[in-house]
Design a protein around this nucleic acid. Structure first.
Lengths: 339, 339
DNA sequence: ACGATATCTGATATCGTTATTATATTATGC
DNA sequence: GCATAATATAATAACGATATCAGATATCGT
């Protein structure tokens, strides 16, 4: 087993000093070098198939070229797709992405933060379950850029990337109203996250703005998973006396669960119920019928988070940076006009 | 902005030398230490909220505690679930998982290998698109454990973790035969991967073993994605003169696409067609009807790969290690007995 | 009380790189 | 031809940790 190739081996083979090799690897300002020397070095690098050791580089003040992504639920297609686009962003800049799922456990989240801290990652992007202000500020003090997604932590001076969930809730509801629906039910998340609260507020505000009544009986709370969508839709349908004709689901998974429940009962979508989801997960475009939904700006969030990290590393944290990106209505086949 | 906390700061605060701190951090054999001293050090560590720098540790010969996962398609639920269980395995051992999706591009794959090499990861787990023997052996010579999944590369002395795809094909087909089906169609992948070939071979062999004819017209090839499942099922149904009653799909995504096509044509599952998929992705348990499928041993693959890496690092590569794990039939509601 | 051994801690070289500083070589101006 | 500047390379000290070796103190037997 040949041993590891280091900058020393390259220098030896090229017949120059390690400084010269380093100069080829990472040129400084005002660095002169003969083309011939540079050629010799590049030749040796190629011949030995040498790769600089990022750990060693980073010890000398360069970054580790790793960012950590901490998400609460790696089985949720929305986060999977977020991870996917973030990976793409990282790839383009030759960064590695370390994915961590906290599984909604605070302990796990903290353990992962520890790990990322030890790895001295260049930044952490997190949709946090339970990080507190002090912990966050400590991380910042230690020089680790950290970006929040979707959830702000009051008192912490940390950038946050937000989806404009309120707008999404409005868009979904308005779409249904525009199609003539007057009784619109809603399957919501448990009301402990800001994103759920804002989507629901978009829903209720839009109803009221259009002179429609908000009927508490038509709002069901649960976890934003397939199973709960199924279960809660069954509950809603049981009291069909309420006679709603449309349904806004706080995410696509829930919408798909609800669709399943509806179809199981022999009803049709969109003839009997119009449905709008949220997230625009890839599944929603191949469901039966394809689901009308609200697309989250995941590309913008991923790019925004990554760029903020790079800027932060370079120039320090400038000011509290809260960024909102707008959602977009994606019309497919799960809604129908009525009168 | 407070600067980074290092072992030096801890030593200073505890009033000991950095050697002593290091001894607390990573005890050697025959290391003695007074409880009092150890306590002082631990106190200082806690007070300063110190985390050892893995980069520096790894420079001194310890690992980086990172493994890289390279997969061809991060949008395929099967790989997503594989990544999920692998992350769990890593988490338990306090390793980080760097996920890389090659998107079926050889260039991307190579770029990622470069990145992982530079990061000096402790191991690479890869379902490769196009790595060649030389490249692999070079990695090994450089001391980077690499584990293949699903695809062997002839000539390379690299451990491979296999799903027993042949068995899976047999189990699926036998299940349908046991239910009385005589004409069983198959939607296969494009025949350039070993796993597809073996699943299909399981299918044909099992048909023959049971005295049934292999009808080429009932075998459709395509990509193993939802869309192709939909499309190919439509093609199969068009020539309904062939009169098949059951369908084996080479993965669940394809099966779900086929189900959609069947239901769109007003037919029922399992009354009109019995269907078996492959992979047991989480989606398959919530489809309508829930899909009978073949579960891949992803936990075993993930654990096997990880453990092999650790063993390799410790003891070197012992011998060519090809491991097969068996699939398992998961019976749900997409198949029906006929006579 | 002395040396031998056991127990505890510190000084230092090292890992693979880069940044700073120093040194060597060539070119330029007068 | 000689000082000066411009160009090109090398020597060396860090970065943050660990492992080796050496030094200091405590314990013990005789």
């Amino acid at each position: 087993m040949r041993t590891r190739v280091t900058i020393r081996d390259v220098a030896k083979k090229a017949g120059v000093s390690i400084s010269t090799v380093s100069r080829v690897l990472s040129p400084q300002a005002n660095d002169y070098m003969r083309e011939e020397t540079r050629g010799k070095v590049l030749g040796a690098i190629k011949e030995l198939d040498y790769r600089p050791d990022i750990r060693a580089q980073s010890l000398r003040g360069r970054g580790t070229r790793i960012v950590g992504l901490v998400m609460p639920d790696a089985l949720n297609p929305f986060y999977q797709e977020l991870a996917y686009v973030l990976e793409e962003v990282c790839y383009r800049e030759k960064y590695g992405l370390l994915v961590c799922s906290s599984k909604n456990s605070i302990t796990r989240e903290l353990t992962y933060i520890d790990l990322l801290e030890s790895q001295k990652v260049d930044g952490i992007i997190i949709s946090t379950v339970g990080l507190k202000e002090i912990k966050l500020n400590n991380l910042v003090k230690k020089g680790i850029p950290i970006i929040l997604m979707d959830r702000d932590v009051p008192g912490a001076n940390i950038p946050v990337m937000f989806t404009n969930n309120y707008l999404g809730g409005c868009q979904a509801t308005q779409h249904l109203i525009d199609l003539g629906h007057k009784k619109i039910a809603c399957i919501a998340g448990s009301m402990n996250t800001l994103s759920s609260i804002n989507r629901l507020k978009g829903y209720t505000d839009t109803l009221q703005k259009n002179g429609l009544e908000v009927d508490k009986k038509l709002i069901k709370e649960g976890k934003l998973i397939y199973k709960d969508g199924y279960k809660l839709m069954k509950e809603l349908a049981r009291k069909s006396s309420d006679g709603f004709t449309a349904l806004f689901c706080l995410n696509d998974l829930v919408a798909l669960g609800a669709m399943r429940a509806i179809q199981e009962d022999g009803k049709n979508i969109p003839s009997d119920y119009s449905i709008v989801g949220f997230d625009n997960i890839s599944l929603s475009s191949v469901s039966n019928p394809p689901l009308t939904t609200i697309a989250q700006p995941i590309k913008q969030i991923a790019q925004g988070a990554f760029r903020t990290i790079k800027r932060w590393k370079k120039q320090g944290l400038l000011k509290k940076e809260h960024r909102f990106w707008d959602t977009k209505l994606i019309v497919r086949k799960s809604c129908k006009e009525i009168n």
